[in-house]
Design a binder for these strands. Structure first.
Lengths: 211, 211
DNA sequence: GTATGTGAAACCGTTCACAGCA
DNA sequence: TGCTGTGAACGGTTTCACATAC
């Protein structure tokens, strides 16, 4: 194991391994080889071994990986062994869907705040959260110790939403709005905008031959 | 320009350029240099020029790119100069949000069908679509000439949803479920699952120093 | 002078192939 | 024997730097 720079794409794949490992654990599979895990994930076995080797030696030669152990280790690497407090900005249809989504209803992620620009929505309650106005963000985000902001505002408002979140002290932003946010270097942004994915799919359907 | 193999990541970036170009066009900017566009997108200017050169010569030396022209060309490259017919599988919160999302309410994408497993939802109408049962998929998808399936079913049902869509003849799948779908080679799958993005964000917040 | 398009170099990620170990 | 962990080779992407064109 070497403490070198980890490519972002490696982290992405750890998350993919995690999903397969969770399924294996549910089915009480105790040990898995890189080959079998690779088959499940549609990935080269050597890549899995290399990816894991960035972080340590988690396998047993001649045997494979113990499913529960690897599950635990990858969760630890990704920082999913703690609870993350999120604030939603933009309670439209997509925002509501995220509030109710299983991924954000589990142990690891919890929405503790929701913000809206639309005065008609402010004060109403969704999923046990009272929708707050944007100008209350600074106070509330600090009060609730929010670590991650989730932006589902329209592209016109998304940058303002990001600026407010940054001012209020969040260090991470999950951005569903279709634009590149400008944030200071100490703030991490991940783009979750699916319009890029649908465009990529159209390109393939347009330009690539079946097969 | 060379008709070589185009890396998938290039196509992804074209979609990013498109968003910035659309904003520029709205603001009546007529010409943009690769440097300025690069600033907007947070990308190296040489990369933009290289990416575009895979598909042709769209700029003018000493001047830059004509915004409307480039917008038109990139739309054509991505296949966004036609309308795509989509079928939704899984009308939960996320599915509903997609049906109502501006990206899928515009000229380029239209949902023409919606499917559900839950008998209570079948027959009800959302966004002018009557929710249909899964066993009607084969007939309806062909009848409505659906090209792309959008899966927002639970991970337990997503693979069955994909199998049905493939059997019914769709050639592209936009997958929001958190698992790797197994599809035949002639079917293109794009993963739009955001749980991977939130995990990547947690990793950065856990392991990387600010700066 | 200014900005594109691109050969060539630098850089990075993936895969092979095998030493090392159970 | 079987499977991991990894050096080295490979292949692909990014960036530089400049000839080319306006």
């Amino acid at each position: 194991m070497k403490r070198e720079k980890i490519p972002a794409i490696v982290v992405t794949r750890l998350s993919i391994y995690l999903r397969s490992l969770a399924i294996l654990a549910q089915h009480d599979v105790e040990v898995i080889s890189s080959r079998h895990l690779a088959d499940m994930c549609g990935i080269n076995p050597a890549q899995i071994r290399r990816d894991l080797s960035y972080f340590g030696e988690f396998g047993v030669r001649g045997v494979g990986y113990y499913v529960n152990e690897l599950l635990f280790e990858i969760r630890k690497i990704l920082g999913l062994d703690k609870q993350w407090r999120l604030a939603l900005v933009g309670v439209g249809n997509l925002g509501l869907a995220l509030l109710k989504h299983p991924e954000f209803q589990n142990q690891r992620y919890t929405f503790v705040l929701a913000f809206e620009k639309d005065p008609k929505k402010i004060g109403t309650i969704v999923e046990q959260l009272t929708i707050a106005p944007l100008n209350a963000m600074n106070r509330l985000v600090k009060e609730k110790q929010v670590e991650i902001g989730v932006i589902t505002a329209t592209p016109e408002w998304a940058q303002k939403a990001a600026d407010s979140l940054v001012r209020a002290g969040v260090r991470g932003i999950l951005n569903f709005a279709p634009l590149q946010l400008k944030c200071p270097g100490h703030v991490f942004v991940e783009d979750a905008d699916f319009t890029i994915k649908s465009d990529a799919l159209c390109y393939k359907l347009t330009s690539l031959e079946p097969g």
